[in-house]
């Protein structure tokens, strides 16, 4: 709902709608089912629930990494859950940023190269004005002096900020973060989350964050609790 701050290109966050989602991992015993989830453009939503309740699965369904057994995932006006894998992958690469608990950086690449990874995968992505974008984003996240370093020589907080920069470098309309502060101490976690929110707000990006930390919930406009897996439900 927030709009881009002046000085950056005006980008609207994505509207995400999940309806009657049902999914069971092949060979898995528990299944995930959700009545409906609605993410307003530019909104911030938290997903909570005990371990194994399906938080990551939900993120992967929205990202199009997984395809639901029933129900639909709609991104703006497009039902992406029905698209073939390659199409979902392209939507994801260009429009959805992902941040993981374990950072998942490539050890053999420098900070700059890690951040630029989406461009390496698809050189056509944001071909105009992308050269300055890496530096600009890194600068705002306090990574400017670290661009040539390799991940193993970074602190956990720095690593997660690199991962956030990688997720945001293509200017996604939706940011999905799976326990982004789970491997950080509370103070660093709070700072990193602040930066994530600040960056998302600049571009009006819609944000969905999986978290265990209930003290952070006040900072979200909406909370999805997967506590009771069977009936499922929104906030």
């Amino acid at each position: 709902m927030s709009s881009a701050t002046p000085g950056t290109p005006h980008l609207r966050g994505a509207r995400v709608r999940c309806e009657e989602l049902g999914f069971r991992h092949p060979g898995g015993d528990s299944s995930l089912s959700l009545a409906s989830v609605d993410l307003e453009p530019g909104s911030r939503t938290a997903v909570i629930g005990p371990s194994g309740s399906g938080k990551t699965t939900l993120l992967h369904l929205i990202a199009g990494i997984l395809s639901p057994d029933r129900g639909t995932v709609t991104l703006d006006d497009e039902v992406i859950s029905g698209l073939p894998e390659a199409a979902r992958r392209r939507r994801r690469l260009a429009g959805i940023g992902l941040v993981f608990q374990e950072f998942e950086l490539l050890e053999h690449l420098s900070v700059r190269e890690n951040i630029s990874l989406p461009f390496a995968i698809d050189p056509a992505l944001g071909s105009e004005g992308r050269s300055g974008r890496v530096e600009e984003l890194a600068g705002r996240l306090g990574l400017g002096p670290l661009l040539r370093r390799h991940p193993r020589r970074l602190s956990h907080g720095e690593r997660q900020r690199v991962a956030i920069a990688r997720a945001l470098v293509v200017g996604p309309r939706l940011l999905l973060a799976d326990e982004p502060t789970g491997n950080l101490d509370p103070r660093t976690g709070a700072v990193v989350l602040d930066q994530l929110f600040a960056e998302a707000e600049r571009a009006g990006t819609t944000v969905l964050v999986v978290t265990h930390d209930h003290s952070l919930l006040a900072r979200f406009e909406q909370v999805i609790d997967l506590e009771s897996p069977e009936p499922g439900g929104g906030s």
Binding site: I96, L98, F100, L106, P118, I121
Partner: peptide, 16 residues
């Protein structure tokens, strides 16, 4: 394998 899964999740194709 982990590295490849990350790339897949980000949006790289298996072919790439």
């Amino acid at each position: 394998q982990r590295e490849r899964e990350t790339l897949l999740k980000i949006g790289a194709s298996r072919g790439w």
